[in-house]
Simulated scan of single mutants.
Amino acid sequence: MPIKCLKIPRLWRPEPLPTSLPEQFRSALAAGLAIFLIGLISSRFIEGGGLKTLVASMGASAVILFVVPHSPMARPWSLVGGHLISGLIGILCVRWVPDTWPAAAAAVGLAIFAMQLTRCLHPPGGASALIPVLGDAGIQALGFQFLLTPLALNVAVILAVSRLYGRWAHAARPAPSTEPHPPSPLGRIGIRAEDFHAALQDVGVFVDVSADELSDIYHFAASRAFRRTFGETTCAHIMTPQPLTAEFGDDLEPVWQLMQRKGIRALPVVDRGRHVIGMVTLKDFFRHARAESFGSLSARLRALLLRSPGVTSTKPEVVGQIMTAPAITARQDVHIAELARLLSEHGIHQVPIVDERGKLVGLVTQTDLIAALYRSVPTGLTQPALAVAS
C-alpha cells in the first residue's frame, strides 16, 4: 500500500515570521531584561516575593511590547489601561461574587468588555483580572493596594523599558509637517489614509494592525505587483548617461545660454568629484531675477545674468547661489516603480542618477519614465490617443 503524505490542515500550519533572526534575538533579550528589572525594582519596594512582587501577566505583556511593538495592543494606553482597569474589575468581583469560578468568569468577561469600551484592549489584562480572584490569601488581602503595588509599579517599569528599547532599536520617523499643503498626485488618486481608517471600521471586528501599517503593507504589495507586471527595469536602463552639468562656481550667463541652446529645463550641479550638490532649473533663474526692479522680465533676467564689476555684489553671481539644494537623487539600481513615486511625491520633473559612491552617472526625466512605462505595456493594449491633423 502506498503511504499517503500527512497533510497538515492550513489552520495549523505555522506562518513564517517577517522579522529577521537578529531582530528576534534582540526582542527576546529585551523582554527578558524587562522582566528582570521589574522583579529587581519591585522587590525594593514590596516584601513577600512571588505574585506580590512580579505579576505573571507581565510576561504576556513583554511578548506584545517587544515582539509586536507596532500593534495597537502595544500602545501605552492599551498597556496601562488594560492592566489597571482589569485589575480593578478583578478586585471588585472578589468582593461582590462569593464563589471562585463565577467570580473568575465575571472578572475576565467584564475586563474584556471594559477594555473594548475604553479602547485599551490588551490581552494580558485578562490575566490581571484573574490574579486577584485566584491569588493566594496574601494577594487577596492586598485589596485595592494590589492596583498600586505590584500592578502599577510593574506596568511603569515595563513601559519605561519598552520605550527605551523602541528608541534604540527603531529609528524614529520624522514628525509630519503641521503646515497645510496640497496633497501630492499620489495622495489625490488611489487609496488614501482615510480609506484605510474607514476600511478598518467597516470590518466590524478587531484587527491587530493599525491604519498606517495597513497602508505600508498595501504599498509594499503594490510595488511587488508593479515589478511583476513591468519587469525589473531600473534607472540604469532608462537614464540619459553622462548628462550635461554645471558647477558651483560657474557664471550664470553661460549656464543660462547652455540651457536655452540645448532646450534643457534643469542641470545637475556637481562638485569636482561629480557628487551632486544641487539642481539649477529655469525656475531658479526666474525666482532670483530682481522682482523689485523695474522693467520687463527679460530686463530683470539680463540684470541677473550680467556679472557685476568689482569685488562685491548685491545679487547672485554664480550657479551655486541660485541652485536648489540638496538635490533629490536616486541610485542607478532603483526600480522605476520607486522612481515614479519619487517624482510624484516631490513634484519634480527630473532626477539625477548616482552610483553606489554617490557620483553622477545619468539623469532621468518624466519623459524617460513615461516612455519606459509605455514600452512595458503588452502589444495590442495601446492605441493612438491623438491624431495629427494634416
Rank of each mutant, 00 (worst) to 15 (best):
I112L: 08
I353L: 08
E213I: 08
L92M: 13
S390V: 09
H83T: 06
R302E: 15
D250C: 07
V94S: 09
G125F: 00
A60G: 09
G126I: 09
H70S: 13
I3N: 11
G109K: 00
G126H: 08
L33P: 06
G347F: 02
D216Q: 14
R13K: 11
A137P: 09
A141Y: 05
A31I: 10
V318W: 10
G320L: 05
G278E: 01
V97T: 06
D212Q: 14
P16T: 05
L6F: 15
A60L: 02
V155W: 04
P98H: 06
A60W: 03
T314Q: 13
Q260E: 12
S376T: 05
A291W: 12
R341D: 12
A385G: 15
I3M: 11
V155T: 14
S296T: 15
H170G: 07
M73Y: 07
H335E: 02
P123R: 05
L11G: 10
L37M: 12
M73H: 02
I85H: 02
F196H: 08
A198C: 00
L92I: 12
A114E: 07
L342Y: 01
T281F: 06
T53K: 03
F45N: 02
L200G: 00
D99I: 09
R192Y: 01
T233A: 04
I41E: 05
G32S: 13
L386M: 11
M239F: 01
C235K: 09
L151F: 04
I35C: 00
V203K: 05
K52D: 07
L369F: 01
